[in-house]
C-alpha cells in the first residue's frame, strides 16, 4: 500500500512538473519562498514568460531578475519583491506588500492594486506603476545615475515621508479616487530631499512638506511631455480613461539644494 502511495506521489510530482514546464505557470500555494524563487530561476532558463498563481506573501519574488524576463503574479507578493531587479518586467494582479523594488537597478513593475511601505527604496533605475495607493516612506532615497532615472507613478495617494532623502528620479502622484477631505500626500513629504523631482496632482498645504523641498515655478514643456508619457502608460495599462485628469493641474516639487547639510559642520 505504502509503495503504491509513494508511486502515486512520484507520478503526481512528475505530472505537476511537466505541466509547469508546458504552461510556465507555477502554483505558488504553500510553496516556500526560496523554493518558489529557485523554481522561477529554473524556468527562465528555457522561457522568459512565467506566471505565478496563488501567491500569498512569498518574499523576494523577482529578486535580481535580468532583462527580457516577464513575470505575471496573481495574488499578493510579499516584501522585497523585485529587490535588486536588473531589467525584468513584473505585473502583479493584486496588492503588494512592503519594500517592493528595493534597490532596483532596471526593469518595470506594474501593480494592479495598492502597495505597502518603502516602495522603491534606494531604487536606481526602472519604472514602477501602482494603480492604487501606497504606504509610508515611498521612494525613500531614490537616486539616479547618468541615463538611469527611476520613475514611480502612483494612481492614488501616498503616506507620510514620501520621497524622504530623495536623491534622484521622479515620483508622480495622480491622486485619483481621493475621499472627501483626504489629501494626496501625508506629512513630511520630501524631507531630506537633495535631488529628483515629485509631481503632485494639486497643491497640498505647505505644512505637509519638509524644509528641503520647494514648489518649482518652472514647469517646462519637457515636464509636460514627461507627465503625459507616464500618464498615457497608466491609462493604457490600467484601462482607465482619466477623463478628469489635467496635466496642467500638476505641481512640481524639487530639492532646494543638492548639498543640504554642507553648512552644518565645523571641522576641527
Amino acid at each position: 500500500m505504502q509503495v503504491f502511495q509513494i508511486f502515486v506521489y512520484i507520478v503526481n510530482k512528475i505530472i505537476v512538473y511537466q505541466v509547469i514546464k508546458i504552461m510556465k505557470v507555477i502554483d505558488a500555494l504553500n510553496v516556500y519562498y526560496s523554493d518558489l524563487n529557485s523554481l522561477v530561476d529554473n524556468l527562465i532558463e528555457t522561457d522568459n514568460n512565467v506566471t505565478l498563481k496563488n501567491v500569498f506573501g512569498q518574499r523576494y519574488i523577482g529578486r535580481g531578475l535580468p532583462k527580457k524576463v516577464k513575470l505575471k503574479i496573481y495574488g499578493i507578493p510579499g516584501n522585497d519583491m523585485a529587490a535588486y531587479m536588473d531589467g525584468a518586467e513584473i505585473e502583479v494582479f493584486g496588492n503588494s506588500q512592503d519594500a517592493i523594488g528595493n534597490t532596483m537597478n532596471y526593469g518595470t513593475i506594474i501593480i494592479h492594486g495598492n502597495c505597502g511601505d518603502t516602495l522603491g527604496y534606494a531604487m536606481r533605475g526602472g519604472e514602477i506603476y501602482v494603480e492604487g495607493n501606497v504606504g509610508y516612506r515611498v521612494g525613500i532615497h531614490m537616486k539616479e545615475y547618468k541615463e538611469m532615472k527611476p520613475v514611480i507613478v502612483i494612481g492614488g495617494r501616498a503616506g507620510d515621508f514620501l520621497g524622504e532623502y530623495m536623491a534622484g528620479g521622479a515620483i508622480i502622484l495622480l491622486g485619483l479616487n481621493l475621499a472627501k477631505n483626504e489629501d494626496i500626500i501625508g506629512k513630511f513629504c520630501g524631507i531630506g530631499m537633495h535631488g529628483g523631482v515629485i509631481y503632485l496632482n494639486g497643491t497640498p498645504d505647505k505644512y505637509r512638506f519638509g524644509k528641503e523641498i520647494a514648489k518649482s515655478v518652472n514647469i517646462t514643456s519637457e515636464d509636460i511631455l514627461f507627465l503625459r508619457k507616464h500618464i498615457d502608460f497608466y491609462k493604457k495599462t490600467f484601462n482607465n480613461q482619466l477623463n478628469n485628469l489635467k496635466v496642467e493641474s500638476f505641481s512640481k516639487y524639487v530639492a532646494l539644494n543638492k548639498n543640504p547639510y554642507s553648512n552644518m559642520y565645523c571641522t576641527y
Binding site: T118, Y121, I140, Y145, M148, E164, G168, G192, G195, Y261
Partner: peptide, 29 residues
Amino acid sequence: MIPVGSDAISPAPHHDIYSIEDLRQLIFS
C-alpha cells in the same frame, strides 16, 4: 552611482529595518 557633486547621505537607520525580523529580511534578500 549618484550624480557628480551630490551629497551622499546615508540615513541613520536602514528604513527597511526596524526590528530583528526586518534584519532577517535584508539578510535573506
